[in-house]
């Protein structure tokens, strides 16, 4: 077995190092692409490269916008509950 094959197989036996920061949210993007591609592949009547790419890109965009809006709303709610409400009540939430 060559060194390259060994390295390749070994990379599947140990997890990657992924921090729990905001940048790790970017892992969402490939997943959204995969979901959009497979969904559109089952929906379109015939797969033609340009039309398929266009429809998939539109779906990816829609999902990304919706996820961003949902994240902003949730962030706002969390900020209200953990920062603003305790300040109004005169104490910490924790």
């Amino acid at each position: 077995m060559t060194a390259l094959t060994c390295t390749l197989l070994a990379s599947f036996t140990t997890p990657m190092r992924i921090d729990t920061n905001a940048a790790s949210m970017l892992w969402l993007i490939p997943l959204v692409v995969a979901i959009a591609v497979v969904y559109k592949a089952t929906k379109v009547h015939q797969i033609r490269a340009r039309a398929f790419a266009k429809e998939t890109a539109l779906l990816i965009g829609s999902i990304m916008v919706f996820v961003t809006v949902a994240a902003l709303i949730l962030y706002g709610v969390a900020w209200l509950v953990t920062e603003q409400l305790p300040a109004m009540a005169g104490g910490s939430a924790f």
């Binding site: 599947f12 036996t13 997890p15 497979v38």
Partner: peptide, 16 residues
């Protein structure tokens, strides 16, 4: 798409 998504998952988190 399905195989690539599955392999990326295995690569990120290991076979475990």
């Amino acid at each position: 798409t399905v195989v690539l998504t599955f392999l990326v998952g295995l690569y990120a988190g290991s076979i475990g």
